[in-house]
Write a protein that binds this DNA or RNA. Structure first.
Ligand SMILES: [Zn+2]
Ligand SMILES: [Zn+2]
Ligand SMILES: [Zn+2]
Ligand SMILES: [Zn+2]
Lengths: 142, 142
DNA sequence: TTTTTTCTTGCAACTCAGTTGCATTTAAGT
DNA sequence: ACTTAAATGCAACTGAGTTGCAAGAAAAAA
């Protein structure tokens, strides 16, 4: 893990008032350096041989989500993808696009969806937008 | 199952060129009369004692989704909710709102989300919008 | 620093929605 | 009625995520 990453991780944990442990640092480090949403298993793989137990990772994610430093971004094949929430506000997250051809999923940070459903009395606290179709690469080669 | 429902079910299967079987009719009937997304288990409950095997229901849903007469609306607690797709076009579906207080999920048929992501070369074939927050009832009593 | 308290971790066993293989039944075309 | 391709039921399986509990590690107190 790079020094810059290490520093950011420390800051994240400190500002969230969470205990600094090796497991949590490694997990946040993996997410920081990935620059994309990861499954629990992908987190393990990125940390490598000394990765924490899967239960520990799931419980860490739960803690991080409660502290609002991690989002459950989307579900694919019954498994959750997690990502750092530093690119979203609490209620306004970015859409995720999954390519039906090559299978990869991109974060569309630049695309924002206007949310105005309070008309009917609904109070939106969080939005999750999942888009499916062809990514730029696959739509060109088609 | 009401006569009207029976008739609609027959039409749905015929227009999709699918074999008319008791299992499929019962499943579509349940979805038609529910007027809301249902899980596999809820479908079984609504059909009752003589409901088809759960495997049959899952396989029927797969067939219906391929034939585009049913949508996988959203996931909640790792289980899929299915609904008839007669209120959506293929690429433009309606958002679903889950109340974090009372737990119920509503279809927001009237709310449409403008989708203009093709800017970056993405071709959107389907959208799934999940909203979370307080429903009208819960936001009033809060 | 040492002690005490509180939170975190690992392990094993479990849960449960959804899937797979295969034998049997049923719808539809002849 | 006969044939064929598709649909169904059952049992066994899969795999992401959870739970209980004992052991270990941070932070707080002494
Ligand atoms: Zn692609
Ligand atoms: Zn993202
Ligand atoms: Zn509510
Ligand atoms: Zn709906």
């Amino acid at each position: 893990m790079e020094d810059r990453t290490k520093h950011k991780v420390e800051q994240l944990l400190k500002s969230a008032r969470l205990r600094r442990t090796k497991a949590r640092s490694d997990i946040l480090g993996a997410l920081l350096e990935a620059h994309q949403p990861l499954t629990r298993e992908q987190i393990s793989e990125r940390i490598g041989a000394c990765a924490p137990n899967k239960v520990t990772i799931y419980r860490a994610m739960e803690t991080f989500v409660a502290a609002d430093i991690v989002h459950k971004a989307f579900v694919q094949d019954r498994t959750w993808y997690f990502e750092l929430s530093h690119h979203c506000t609490t209620d306004q997250c970015h859409p995720h696009f999954s390519c039906t051809s090559c299978g990869r999923t991109d974060c569309l940070h630049e695309l924002s969806i206007p949310m105005t459903a309070d008309s009917g009395g609904y109070i939106i606290q969080h939005q999750r937008v999942q888009l499916e179709g062809l990514c730029p690469k696959c739509s060109k080669s088609a």
